[in-house]
């Protein structure tokens, strides 16, 4: 475990979802499944967050917002697509206003399918994300050393 992943702070954004996955994200952090025992804290500030939990199939109006939050986050950062809508568009993939998944707006590191995504899946996805976070942090550190 690297220093960045001992207590990964998450920021959650609903990218045109039906709210099913959003309430499961919140349920993961509540006493039923207790994500907070892993040090996962839900913050509203992109600058404080390590992991970006996005739900929803992203519509035209939302692309700019999702990109903005992603750009505001500080490296190293990980994006987890929660729910099948965020992975591929889900049942709405052929709707006229839907671009079909978060990876068409920002790069995604971990995909957590499900409709709605189960809290167990989400905890698993966050742990996977933490591994990726460690790799990215190590790469950053190596790049800094190499630069000198």
């Amino acid at each position: 475990m690297g220093y960045a992943s001992k207590s990964p702070w998450v920021i959650h954004y609903d990218g045109s979802s039906c709210n099913g996955c959003d309430i499961e994200v919140l349920a993961t952090l509540c006493p039923g499944f207790d994500g907070e025992r892993f040090g996962v804290v839900n913050t509203g500030n992109p600058k404080h967050a390590d992991i970006f939990l996005v739900t929803g199939s992203v519509n035209e109006q939302n692309i700019a917002v999702v990109k903005e939050i992603y750009d505001q986050m500080v490296e190293p950062k990980v994006v987890v697509a929660c729910g099948i809508c965020a992975c591929t568009g889900g049942v709405f993939h052929d709707c006229y206003n839907v671009i079909g998944g978060v990876d068409k707006a920002i790069p995604v590191d971990v995909y957590a399918p499900g409709c709605a995504v189960r809290p167990e899946s989400l905890i698993d996805a966050i742990v996977e994300g933490v591994k990726v976070l460690d790799e990215k942090a190590a790469a950053l550190k190596a790049a800094k050393k190499g630069g000198r």
Binding site: I23, S57, Q61, C95, N97, V98
Partner: peptide, 27 residues
């Protein structure tokens, strides 16, 4: 920000299949 336009999906899902879309308007 959440407009998916799912009312148009009646054209591609029949009335039995559309119930699964109707459920997912809001979780």
């Amino acid at each position: 920000f959440v407009h998916r336009g799912l009312e148009k999906l009646v054209e591609t899902r029949d009335y039995n299949q559309f119930i699964y879309i109707a459920e997912r308007i809001c979780g």
